[in-house]
């Protein structure tokens, strides 16, 4: 009897936790939509690749600049 009650409470607990976690994700999703993160689904994918480029190519362009007077 005791084990049954304990088992019961575990199921209730686990299910409620899983639902709460799911609701948290739903809330996060709705917030993300609200702040406009889903308005443009293309640019970020391109932008993501830029940061690397900028760092890599900055010294390159500078050397180009130095070469110019010659």
């Amino acid at each position: 009897m005791l084990t049954q009650i304990r088992g019961m409470s575990v199921i209730y607990l686990l299910i409620s936790i899983s639902i709460i976690v799911a609701i948290a994700f739903l809330y996060a999703f709705l917030r993300a939509v609200k702040t406009g993160q889903y308005d443009d689904d293309y640019t970020p994918s391109v932008r993501m690749l830029f940061d690397d480029e900028l760092i890599k190519s900055e010294p390159k362009t500078k050397t180009k600049e130095e070469q110019k007077p010659i």
Binding site: A22, L30, V33, Y38
Partner: peptide
């Protein structure tokens, strides 16, 4: 004003569906 209702609706439906 951007209309995002459809995305909200899909989000909610998917949440319910999955669970």
């Amino acid at each position: 004003k951007v209309d995002r209702t459809l995305i909200y609706k899909i989000g909610v439906a998917f949440f319910c569906f999955g669970n």
